[in-house]
Structures are given as structure tokens and as C-alpha cells.
């Protein structure tokens, strides 16, 4: 097992409220395995990924739970050991490359620093020339035309697709074992989405990376992953091999999700489900999906359903099967 999250609770504190976002999430990634996480926007997917690297915003707090990466306890790991993992082993593609690239620094400033500290942790002390060569190679790897110009540009001078490629190049410098991809195609034009998707797919296979792909684009998850989790409002609803999940969804939420999406295209989840995500300040005590669930029973509102193992590869959290 490369990564194992158990019973993860993450809260955000604002000035006046506590937002109880992740509510006992679990997740496992085996070595070389590609895992998908699907769910609507705002269901805590980004929070989940950021927790793995412990890069939550200052008001985000991991209240309870355990994150085991490669046998190490991330939550109790020393700062320098954690830095090693962040520099060399795990990389993350952020959702919106415009927001994830510093607007007032050139691409090369940010890429050089990333490469520099990675190389330092490998015991090397890179010169400017080495950094330049390496950065150029990284940008060529992600099929950026004219990488030299890109290095000398500010993020706002690049197109959306180019920014995402820069973002991927950055993530790959650190991701030698595990790649976390947070909605990597959401903020892109439809024509470019496919290119980026293929790029990530090829790179993951070529470098034999484990990966977590978070998305509300179901087609993408279907094509790229071995196993998938369904996340709703900070709760895991269902876990199964991707094939089984898409063909025999058990949880009502998954069923609606999959039937409402245009079949296996890379489009997002259409608004097939009535209602809204619950208020994280005061979430439902039982199943968080209960208020929107067509099969909701009285105990759904009061008792949180435990994970039920339907078969070795299929787990669901629903009272219908209990």
C-alpha cells in the first residue's frame, strides 16, 4: 500500500463558523495504481488532496484521522522529512493553473526554485545552467512549444492550455511516485481538455506513477483509473473498481450521478440531482446525502451509515444494504 487515509476529518475555521468538510474519509492507493475520486464541485475533493500533502490553508485543520504514505505517518512527520516527500515523491496538479501560478513572478522563477530544492534534496547543488537545462527539459516533456519563451513569460501571458502544461511540468518534477491531479481539465476549453488528458495519461504510464485523479468528469475517470471513490459532501459514498462502479453502481448517489452524466463522455456531471450540497456549518447528522436521496428512510437522517463490504472490491455506505 503506497497511501492509506483512514477516518480523516478536516474542518475549516472562519471568523465566525466552523465548516466541517471532510467527515471520516478513507482512501487507499496501491503501488502503481490509478485511483479516481468523483463527486460534485464543493464536495471536498480538493481538501482531500491538500490534506495528503499537508498544504491546507491556515484555517484548515486536520481534526482526526491518519495519513500513511509509504509506511510513514504524514501527520506526525517532521518538517524536513515531509519536505523530502514533497520535493521528490509526491506532486500535485492544482485545479486552476491561473490561480496556482504566482502572477507576479515569471514561470522560470517558480520552476527554478522548485527544481533547485528538489535537486538539493537529491544531494546536488545545481548551477543556473543546470536549472535552465532541466527546466527546458521539463517543459519539453509536457509538449510545450517554444519552452524558452514560456520560461520568460509571466503566467498571464500564456494561454490556458499552456498554463496547465506548466502546472503539470511543475507537478511532475516532484511526482516520482505519486501524482495528485485536482480537476486538471475543468478550467480549459473543450478542445484542449482532451489533449491535456492524454498528456497526463501518457506521462503517468510512461513514468509508471501511482495517481489520484479527482474529477467530476466521469469519462476521464473511467478511461484513466483502476479503482474509484465517490465523494459526496465530505463523505465517501462508495468504493469499487472503476469498471464495477460504472456498470453496477450500488449507492443511490452513484446511480444518479452515473445515469445523469452523458454516457462516458468527458463532460461534467449535469444537474441531474435536485437540491444542493448541505451546509457544512451544520451538516446532517446521519447520511449527508439523505436530504436529497430518493430512497431516504428515517434512520438515514439520524445514523451515519457504516461502510458495507458488498464484495472484496466493492464497498458502499448506505442503509439500503445494511
Amino acid at each position: 500500500m503506497l497511501l492509506e487515509l483512514t477516518n480523516l476529518h478536516v474542518h475549516y475555521k472562519s471568523y465566525w463558523y466552523v465548516f466541517k468538510v471532510l467527515n471520516g474519509v478513507w482512501l487507499r492507493v496501491r503501488r502503481g495504481e490509478r485511483v479516481g475520486v468523483i463527486g460534485e464541485s464543493g464536495s471536498g475533493k480538493t481538501t482531500l488532496l491538500k490534506s495528503i500533502l499537508k498544504i491546507l490553508p491556515l484555517n484548515g485543520m486536520i481534526i482526526r484521522g491518519e495519513i500513511k504514505y509509504d509506511g510513514k505517518d504524514i501527520l506526525n512527520l517532521g518538517e524536513s522529512k515531509l519536505a523530502e516527500i514533497r520535493r521528490r515523491e509526491v506532486g500535485m496538479i492544482f485545479q486552476d493553473p491561473m490561480a496556482a501560478l504566482n502572477p507576479v513572478f515569471k514561470v522560470k522563477d517558480q520552476l527554478y526554485d522548485i527544481l533547485k530544492y528538489k535537486m538539493i534534496s537529491e544531494g546536488r547543488n545545481p548551477s543556473k545552467q543546470e536549472l535552465y537545462d532541466e527546466a527546458l527539459k521539463m517543459l519539453t516533456d509536457v509538449k510545450l512549444p517554444d519552452p524558452e519563451r514560456v520560461l520568460n513569460s509571466y503566467p498571464f501571458q500564456l494561454s490556458g492550455g499552456m498554463r496547465q502544461r506548466v502546472m503539470i511540468a511543475m507537478a511532475l518534477t516532484s511526482a516520482e511516485k505519486l501524482l495528485l491531479a485536482d480537476e486538471p481539465t475543468t478550467n480549459l476549453d473543450v478542445t484542449i481538455q482532451d489533449q491535456i488528458l492524454k498528456l497526463i495519461h501518457n506521462l503517468v504510464i510512461q513514468k509508471n506513477l501511482s495517481a489520484i485523479l479527482v474529477s467530476h468528469a466521469l469519462g476521464m475517470v473511467y478511461q484513466m483509473t483502476d479503482r474509484a471513490y465517490v465523494l459526496y459532501a465530505g463523505d465517501i459514498m462508495e468504493e469499487a473498481s472503476t469498471k464495477e462502479l460504472f456498470e453496477k453502481p450500488k449507492h443511490p448517489y452513484t446511480q444518479i450521478l452515473i445515469s445523469s452524466a452523458p454516457r462516458l463522455s468527458s463532460k461534467g456531471i449535469s444537474e441531474g440531482i435536485k437540491g444542493k450540497l448541505p451546509d457544512y456549518r451544520n451538516p446532517p447528522a446521519g447520511c449527508r446525502f439523505a436530504p436529497r436521496c430518493p430512497y431516504s428512510m428515517s434512520k438515514c437522517n439520524t445514523i451515519k451509515p457504516e461502510p458495507i463490504e458488498l464484495n472484496k472490491e466493492h464497498i458502499t455506505c448506505c442503509h439500503l444494504y445494511g
Binding site: 500533502l53 491556515l58 514533497r86 520535493r87 501560478l101 526554485d113 522548485i114 528538489k118 534534496s121 502546472m167
Partner: peptide
């Protein structure tokens, strides 16, 4: 305080760049 929580800072954190930098 606002910027330190922005994605472009968290992105750098995710690469293990020292806090002071």
C-alpha cells in the same frame, strides 16, 4: 494573510520549498 492561503503559495508548499523563501 490573504495571499498566504492562495493556491499559488500552496503550490510552492506542495514542492517542499522552504517557508522563509
Amino acid at each position: 494573510i490573504e495571499n498566504i492561503n492562495k493556491d499559488y503559495i500552496l503550490n510552492l508548499y506542495s514542492h517542499g520549498i522552504p517557508q522563509s523563501i
